[in-house]
Amino acid sequence: MTGAILFHELTARQRVAALVDAGSFSELLPPPERITSPYLAQLGIPVSFDDGLVIGHARIGGKKIYLAAQVGQFVGGAVGEIHGAKLTGLFKAAARDKLPCVLIIESGGVRLHEGSSGEIAIAETMRAIFECRALKVPTIAVIATDIGAFGGIGILSTCCDFRIMTEHGRLGISGPIVIEKWMGKKAYDSANRALVWKTSGGKTKYLLGDADALVHDTADAVRDGISKFLGKSSAVSLVSVKARQKELQKRLKKFGAASDPDTVWKSMGVRDIQAASLASGPEFAALAKRGK
C-alpha cells in the first residue's frame, strides 16, 4: 500500500491516488488524449502524454476538489505551454465551480525550451488563483520534494491561500546552484546540504511563516493537512498586500545581516538546534514558537 511509502518517493499519479478518496479521481485531458508539447518535439526531446502534469477532480473526505500533481522527473516538472494551460484551466474551473483547488508541486519553474509560453502560462495561472481567492475558493499548494517549488512556480505557490510543506520540500525563487553561480561559493555553497535545507527547506519556511503547515512525509499526513485548509480562503486586497509587505520588511531588518541560518532558527524560538534538526513535522513545530 502506498500509505507506508514516503510521500516524496511516490510518482505524481501515485500521489494523487494516495491522497484522494478511493476511486474518486477523474482525470481531465488524460494520457490517451496525447496533448503533448509541440516545442519539445521540434527540438528532438521526448514528450510526455500528460506534459508532466496530472489534473482532474476528486474527493477528499467526501469533499469535491480540483487537484493537480506535477511530474518532477519529466524535465524537472517545468512548466511549458501545455502544462501551464492545464494549470490555468484547472484553477479557472475551480473558480467557476467554487471548488477548492489543490496543487501538488514539484517544479523548477518555467521550462526553458518554451520560455515565453511558460512565463505567460504561469502569469495566467496566478491570475486564475487570484480569481479563486476573490471568490473565497481555497487554493492550496503542497511542496514535499527536493525538486520543490522554484522559479515561477515558487512565486505561484505563494499566491495560493496556503502552503503545506514537509521537511523534504524546498521553496525559493533561484535554486541553490543558481545562487552559487551568481554570488560565489563563499557566499552560498550549494553542496552544503545543511545550509541549503536550512535556507530553503520546509522547516525554515514554516518558522518564517511562508509555509502554513509542516507535516510528516506520508500521504495520510498530507491529506490531513489539506483537509484542514479546504474550507478557508481569503481575497487578496491592497490592505492585505501592504500588511504582507510590512511583515517582509520586518523580516529583512531582523535577518538581513544574518550569515547563519541557525540565527533565524534561534530567534524563532528554537532552543535546541540539534534536536530540532532531527525532529520532523509537527514535532519540529512543537519545538519552535513560530513568529512573523
Binding site: T11, P30, P31, P32, F49, V71, Q73, F74
Partner: peptide, 19 residues
Amino acid sequence: KPWALAGVVGSGNLEVMLE
C-alpha cells in the same frame, strides 16, 4: 481499464501506454 500507463519520461526511463 481501457488504458494504462507505466513509468515517466525521465533520464534513463520511459513511459509506456497500453490501450
